[in-house]
Design a protein around this nucleic acid. Structure first.
Lengths: 247, 247
DNA sequence: CGAGGTCTTGAAGACGATCAACAAACGTGG
DNA sequence: CCACGTTTGTTGATCGTCTTCAAGACCTCG
């Protein structure tokens, strides 16, 4: 995941927002200034823990993070993946107590914004606030799509769908090439995303490779047949709401 | 589902909100006045269709509604259940285009609020707006819990968890008795919620009955052993955020 | 009273889990 | 730069949960 160190921390976030609505110069300036502390989290470390009451919300500047819950027997389920430009816990601003943890899947660069700032913005910047609200609604839309994938798609369809989603999301923030991208997640991580065993993920991955739909070697994912992949995934990006309109 | 026709349409919504934060008299008055049209939807009819661009958001006054998506082969997956006091499509205020349908599982009484009103409130009523934002975040929290249930719980645990959630949510809005409630959903509906076959739902239900955890006869659900049910569900209601605090 | 929806049961089969072992890749320190 | 240990990926065999198909019982409502 190449990152231009000189680019503002918020470049990806701004792109993500501008794919859905216009930002005023003032709003863009506010976004650039609102983040304080920047930290580096190493892969495997928690960014926020279940039960925490964060006093700020966290933005992924680079890397991959995941929201997850663990059950009593230790089974982990990942409920969301977060890429550059994603808030991992914007919802904690209103929910107050975290009902799940957030972990760094790969090394992550993160920036934070105090909840007080968000609260002040909700008074002075209604439009920007609505856009932040929108970001949490996009998380919800992805949750729903994952539910459909887990409940009603085959394992192959489910994995294909995930790959389509990642491709599309990355293209919005301008990461990755035309038909390939970097995805530093292991097959065990994938199994915790899909709710499958890692053995089965391995076999499903081989099936997608065997059908010449994708190549996935280490962290490099190449899409060999975008049409075919979308077909087995029944992928339709409408749920990502990548449409610029007044909100 | 008994409903006092003289009670304000928004009684359940107000209860739901007041379980999370205090409302001012002004806010309570605004909520009571903001809803316009009241309609009766008969079981099986759609309240909102996939692809719609609603100009208002819909509140369930009584009855049970469900968000759902259908795949190409016709498999349906329900991604959320909505009870009295729930907005079924508050998110359409910001997402604009519906990425799923909403159907009336039982007969529903609904009320609607124009998006213009919500937009105006986002300028004049920041606190109330944050609470509406909170409502959509609670939907997200439930989505995540359902993901965990589908991905990592056994079918029995998953169904038990759903029953615990319904019990808890209904208790917040004051519907149902101490240990029983009305739930007008068929086993086929349940299978579309859980991502299982209806045959298996039937067997899982029998298992819960056989263990004397619940009785489910027609629309009447009785919880015979709340402790035991929570245990097999690994249920922890923290994700519902039923805590009154300044937000 | 009949008809359609809902629930229940049995039998067979598929998809994915689990267990176990090994290969390959990676990172770290000597 | 190589050696070693650890993590990650791969494969085979067996097992179990859940699906599918099919049929019959029950129930509710016109």
């Amino acid at each position: 995941m190449k990152t231009d160190a000189s680019a503002p921390l918020t470049a990806s976030l701004v792109r993500k927002l501008e794919a859905r609505d216009d930002l005023s110069d003032e709003e863009r300036a506010i976004i650039e200034q609102m983040f304080t502390e920047v930290r580096l989290i190493k892969a495997g470390d928690d960014i926020v823990r279940d039960g925490d009451r964060p006093r700020h919300s966290t933005l992924v500047v680079s890397g991959v993070a995941a929201r997850y819950k663990v059950l009593q027997e230790g089974e982990r389920q990942i409920t969301a993946l977060h890429l550059a430009g994603d808030f991992v816990d914007l919802h904690s601003f209103m929910l107050k107590e975290m009902d799940h943890g957030v972990t760094a899947i790969s090394q992550c660069r993160i920036a934070t914004v105090p909840h007080e700032t968000l609260s002040a913005l909700s008074v002075s910047q209604p439009h920007l606030t609505r856009l932040f609200w929108l970001l949490t609604l996009l998380d919800g839309a992805m949750h729903r799509e994952w539910l459909v994938a887990m409940g009603r798609r085959s394992a192959v369809g489910q994995l294909a769908h995930l790959i389509c989603e990642l491709k599309r999301r990355l293209s919005v923030v301008g990461t990755g090439d035309q038909d390939s991208f970097t995805m530093p997640v292991t097959q065990v991580d994938l199994s915790d995303i899909l709710g499958l065993s890692s053995v089965h993920v391995n076999r499903v991955l081989q099936e997608l490779r065997g059908d010449n739909l994708i190549a996935w070697k280490g962290v490099n994912v190449s899409i060999l047949d975008w049409e075919g992949l979308q077909r087995v995934a029944e992928f339709d990006d409408r749920y990502l709401h990548i449409v610029k309109e007044p909100r």
